[in-house]
């Protein structure tokens, strides 16, 4: 157990977490103290001992920087203690964001694979599509997202679909790039081998190119699912009525509810980490079934 702690990742990770927490609490005291000093002066409290002053700075209702336990408390309160169907429930908002993320990710992955297949089989589409695909990612998504959400809203398409489209717009890119590389990854000797069998394009694709590209697909999907979540959150910022973690960020900043913002942020980060980890698990399972992972 001790040896495992010493040689594995656990100990280094715990040390880093501890260091971050110490730094965070110290910063909370520092950043929240001006307001606390004014409050104490107004209440005519003098010579407050430092330990008490510190715990005051960690317990404000709208601190500049909430302490970690305040954020965790808010997450607990807003996920476990609220009804899951309530608009005050973070679980409810997380589900809204998650569903748009997953739909957009699925669309984006399919679009990415489709474009990659077109690009590797057709030189004209290689030259005509690739510049546009790259250009699409240089446009700031913060500028496009409101146009998509508001524009589609004007023609009656609201809810999950506009947000999923933004997720798709972001997530197809790593999949195209990864899959073009993956589908082109078979070695010349393997392509020669298929030629000696007089294999047609479809057989070369299904028996050689596609299996070769699978590890590339999973690497792309890991990036794709994380930015899908970002796309969904950005989409939510343009439609405050729709709900989602993005809306919690937005309303939190309108009302100066810093704890609420940080709670939503923490949940979004945890969601992204979980999704990336799930893609990793799927990758392990698929590669093991293919026999290429030991």
């Amino acid at each position: 157990m001790i040896a495992r702690l010493w040689h594995g990742n656990t100990l280094p990770v715990l040390i880093v977490v501890a260091a971050i927490l110490v730094f965070w609490y110290a910063m909370a005291v520092h950043m929240n103290s001006p307001w606390q000093e004014r409050m104490n002066a107004r209440a005519e409290l003098e010579n407050v001992p430092f330990t008490e002053f510190a715990s005051q700075t960690w317990a404000q209702a709208k601190p500049l920087l909430p302490a970690p336990h305040q954020i965790l408390g808010e997450v607990w309160k807003a996920t476990i203690e609220e009804e899951i169907t309530s608009r005050r429930s973070l679980a409810y908002h997380s589900w809204i964001t998650l569903s748009a993320t997953l739909l957009g990710f699925a669309f984006g992955t399919l679009l990415g694979i489709g474009l990659a297949v077109a690009i590797i089989h057709n030189e004209a589409s290689d030259r005509s599509l690739m510049p546009w695909i790259i250009a699409s990612q240089t446009v700031p998504i913060l500028a496009i997202a409101p146009m998509v959400v508001v524009g589609l809203g004007a023609v009656g398409v609201t809810g999950m679909v506009p947000k999923a489209l933004i997720s798709m717009y972001l997530s197809f890119f790593p999949v195209v790039v990864g899959m073009v590389k993956g589908l082109r990854s078979p070695e010349q000797i393997q392509l020669d081998l298929m030629a000696t069998y007089n294999a047609n394009d479809w057989q070369i694709f299904t028996k050689l190119r596609w299996p070769s590209a699978i590890p590339f697909l999973f690497a792309s999907m890991r990036v794709g699912i994380a930015i899908s979540l970002i796309g969904a959150v950005v989409g939510e910022l343009s439609n405050a009525a729709g709900g989602g973690l993005g809306v919690r960020l937005l309303t939190g900043s309108y009302n100066g509810q810093t704890i609420q913002i940080w709670a939503a942020l923490l949940l979004a980060a945890a969601l992204a980490a979980t999704l990336v980890a799930l893609v990793g698990v799927a990758e392990k399972i698929v590669l093991r079934r293919m026999g290429v992972a030991t």
């Binding site: 000797i189 393997q190 299996p211």
Partner: peptide, 20 residues
């Protein structure tokens, strides 16, 4: 080639790693 008149053995085995 189209008639599969020959079998070709390459310098490397060139086995597909995902197949038994």
């Amino acid at each position: 080639r189209q008639n599969r008149d020959y079998g070709y053995v390459f310098q490397a085995a060139a086995l597909l790693p995902w197949r038994t």
